[in-house]
């Protein structure tokens, strides 16, 4: 039961990860800072998913990356580019609409929920 629930939860969250990552990349972030800022909002992301995802977003020309070598250890920073920003805004809208729809749907389903 718990493993099933777990896999369903992972599946449910998977689609939202891109949106979550895009939302944090409005300002430049490097890999681990991104993990921390996502975790602060309660979103845990598998690191083996995150780094490949960042690279994929770069390949899809939604983010750009640059190496910062000024500090003690070199870090690769990612930030949304123009197209990425546009896609992010649209996905955000999509998400808001979806969550509203689902909210209504689930509210109607649950008689215990106070109106």
């Amino acid at each position: 039961m718990s493993t099933l629930l777990n896999s369903l939860r992972v599946e449910l969250r998977r689609g939202t990860l891109t949106l979550a990552v895009l939302s944090q990349l409005r300002s430049p972030q490097y890999g681990y800072s991104l993990v921390l800022s996502l975790e602060k909002s309660g979103i845990t992301i598998d690191q083996s998913t995150l780094y490949p995802l960042l690279r994929r977003l770069e390949k899809q020309e939604l983010v750009t990356s640059s190496w910062d070598t000024s500090e003690s250890r070199p870090r690769k920073y990612y930030v949304l580019c123009e197209m990425g920003l546009e896609v992010f805004q649209q996905l955000k809208k999509e998400w808001q609409q979806l969550s509203e729809e689902l909210y209504l749907l689930l509210k109607g389903d649950d008689p215990d929920e106070p109106n």
Binding site: Y30, G31, Y32, S33, Q47, Y51, W67, R73, P74, R75, K76
Partner: peptide, 9 residues
């Protein structure tokens, strides 16, 4: 390089 910097972070 990125992986190393992440691990060290």
């Amino acid at each position: 390089l990125e992986l190393r910097s992440t691990i060290e972070d």
